[in-house]
Design a protein around this nucleic acid. Structure first.
Lengths: 220, 220
DNA sequence: CTAAGTTTGTGTACACCGTCCACAAAGAAT
DNA sequence: ATTCTTTGTGGACGGTGTACACAAACTTAG
């Protein structure tokens, strides 16, 4: 198998003195997040995370039933990071504006944060949102949420709800609207981080992103 | 490694009598396409295709420099299949309508075909369009095109050009418009085949697809 | 405070994968 | 008929995930 990214991790993790590790699950998870950060989901190798934690491969099975479960945990962390980025972008929005404008600005902020996150952390982004294969899903717990307790998709849903409340979107158009919005923004994110738009500079991609969000706003 | 899909291929491929195979490259490619069809890009394993061709693993290296090259060839075939599906959908369009309507119908047909192809052949779809990792690209030759000589992305671009010619899209909105349209349709395709909309029945997903295309048409 | 029990890390082993190397069989060219 | 080139074979190496038996350390009962 050709190694995806990770060079063999030249840092011997300071062989621990105790037989027990202390918090191995956390250490494995952190290593997994690190691998996902620069290499995406495929780079999260069970053996590599144990190596980085200074432990024998099978030790991982005391904390994760399989590689898949480890990956789901890493994914939850990545989702949480994405949710945090969105919440941060929402928090800086000026609140002294008409409700319609405010609601629209919130939706825009979420889309913008999504695209920014994809570019700033492509590995985590892909881990969070490119479910890729198998059903994934897994636990719906708060592990994948941000400070508000909502995961990225719920944040988008709530923002679109506010769009309806503010009168900026007809209630008849509400059902499944979040899927339409998500489709557009997610597709562009992929185009930019691993598609034909890969090399695009941040400024152009931001402009294109705003155009895309315009399209969604007009067309929803 | 947990096998992705393929059970060990219970068909011994009728051990050939001749030392030479005849057309091994074709046989490997066909096996690769088959694997991609039910299992996506990750299921295209070099050893498995050689097994199916009744040949030793290393034989593949006489025809493909690496697994990656084999996968790119499979991908080209998948792109070609997608292009064919689009051309087929374009061919049945009624031509006795105003140019504006006709141009719009062409864009809609391409989007619809894209979504249909994703649902009908999710494995090939993912192989063709989920570049996933590494730069891919590879050769731009006619291997990935349909009968018209255009690959899926070129078909979309041409359709949007006709939109401008017919006056249905302001020339100032033309640049990069295909990326916006592609983003939306591609995002929805992913949502349907491997995202939260996975179980959705064909009727609902078609309706949602048409709504998405409405959105693009209005918002472009 | 010792003895039993449970948790957690270790060692060994297997099947899969991609890829490199040396070699042999068959066809093509001289 | 001899040489050259193409194409398939055999064996090996390092990578992966994972199953099983075992040992070390912490936890709890008596």
């Amino acid at each position: 198998m050709s190694p995806r990214i990770a060079p063999p991790a030249p840092s011997p993790p300071a062989a621990r003195s105790t037989y027990r590790h202390g918090d191995l699950r956390r250490a494995l998870l952190d290593a997994g997040i690190e691998l996902a950060r620069d290499g995406g989901p495929d780079a999260v190798a069970l053996r590599e995370v144990t190596r980085r934690a200074g432990v024998v491969p099978n030790a991982a099975y005391r904390h994760f039933a399989s590689r898949r479960e480890l990956l789901l945990a890493v994914r939850a962390a990545a989702l949480s990071a994405a949710a945090g980025a969105m919440e941060k972008e929402l928090a800086v929005l000026p609140r002294d504006q008409p409700p319609v404008d405010f609601a629209r600005a919130q939706v825009r902020a979420i889309g913008t944060a999504y695209l920014r996150f994809a570019q700033a952390e492509p590995g985590l982004f892909r881990t969070a949102f490119v479910v890729s294969s198998e059903d994934a899903e897994g636990e719906v717990g708060p592990a994948r949420a941000g400070a508000s307790g909502k995961d990225p998709f719920q944040l988008l849903g709530a923002a679109i709800d506010r769009l309806v409340e503010a009168g900026a979107l007809a209630p008849s158009h509400r059902p499944n609207a979040e899927y339409l919005a998500w489709s557009a923004v997610h597709g562009l994110a992929l185009l930019i981080i691993e598609g034909p738009l890969k090399g695009m500079d941040a400024q152009s991609s931001h402009a294109l992103g705003q155009r895309l969000i315009d399209m969604v706003e007009r067309g929803l």
